[in-house]
């Protein structure tokens, strides 16, 4: 078992002939994912690293049985790419594309809800379950199969933390990067129950950042609904208010979204909060020991 993806996941890459699409198709295959099809309108009939390219998602799904999509399509066309995927029957879409207007994302999110589809992202590194499948762009080298679940709002910081977990001899069950945009398809509150129910996950690492209230909502949720131990880290405790720190969401505005408020909420819910990223592996090992899992 793993979360969202497994050995039966048949990956479609939308925007496969672009630079990113091509590079990450090769990487996903090297990870062990079954990448069965790609799409780029007008480039049907080509292949990318042996993967057949189709003009439309409808043809790709009919021919290859693809059941999850990884979207690299540029921002102005990403909404359309997503709607096309859902209408062709895809129910899991990892949207790697950054700079998608939130008005487009509102349409995508609510359409996904209407049709029973799930979006991870946008502007996210995706999902990886070591030994099973990867849909996204997290570097293969940071992983090793194990029992730590990771859910994060960050990109490269997730790589850093996942890699740190590997360095101490532990491994990951599934890692999900949610993305840090103002409107995300999947939040902590959506993702935490999947890890709680996953028999392959013993401990959950949650990586948040300043801005918004997603971490506070997660704290409230896990306090009431989660039994598995959680380690958290919040990036941006030194960030001054009013400065936008890269992610559109990462800003302390009107006193909301501070690291202090998030840390307090999480600690109040019984979560072990790391002050710095390099403290996470130690806290994970400690919790595993306390829970008799190691």
């Amino acid at each position: 078992m793993s979360v969202l993806v497994d050995g039966d996941t048949r990956v479609l890459v939308q925007g496969i002939t672009g630079h990113q699409g091509t590079v990450h198709t090769v990487q996903m295959k090297a990870f062990g994912s079954k990448v069965v099809a790609g799409t780029t309108p007008g480039k049907g009939g080509q292949t990318v690293d042996g993967v057949p390219v189709f003009d439309s998602v409808e043809e790709a799904v009919a021919t290859t049985g693809a059941n999850a999509s990884c979207i690299f399509v540029p921002a102005p066309f990403a909404r359309d790419a997503f709607l096309e995927a859902v209408d062709a029957g895809i129910r899991l879409a990892v949207v790697v594309t950054e700079h998608i207007p939130f008005h487009d994302m509102l349409t995508m999110y609510h359409y996904a809800r209407l049709r029973g589809a799930r979006i991870i992202g946008p502007n996210c590194p995706g999902i990886a379950a070591p030994g099973k499948a990867k849909v996204g762009i997290i570097p293969n080298v940071v992983f090793r199969p194990g029992r730590v679940g990771v859910v994060s709002r960050s990109g490269t910081l997730t790589y850093e933390i996942v890699s740190g977990i590997k360095d101490v001899g532990l491994g990951q069950s599934t890692c999900i990067g949610l993305g840090g945009d103002p409107v995300v398809g999947t939040s902590f509150v959506d993702a935490l129950p999947w890890f709680e129910e996953d028999p392959d996950t013993d401990v959950i690492v949650m990586v948040g950042e300043i801005g918004g209230t997603a971490e506070e909502e997660a704290a409230e949720y896990l306090h009431h609904h989660l039994d598995k131990p959680v380690v958290a880290y919040i990036a941006g405790r030194s960030a001054p208010p009013g400065k936008r720190m890269g992610h559109a969401g990462a800003i302390i505005a009107r006193g909301r979204g501070t690291a202090e408020s998030k840390v307090r909420a999480l600690e109040g819910a019984g979560v072990r909060v790391a002050q710095f990223p390099y403290e996470i592996p130690g806290l994970v090992a400690q919790l595993l020991q306390e829970h008799g899992r190691r």
Binding site: S154, A235, A239
Partner: peptide, 24 residues
């Protein structure tokens, strides 16, 4: 982003950048 110190920071990704500032 301009802050008021003297150490220049170059990083890739908002989360990693903020974590770097925190540690510094």
């Amino acid at each position: 982003v301009q802050l008021d110190g003297n150490i220049g920071v170059i990083a890739n990704g908002a989360g990693l950048t903020m974590a770097t500032l925190d540690v510094l």
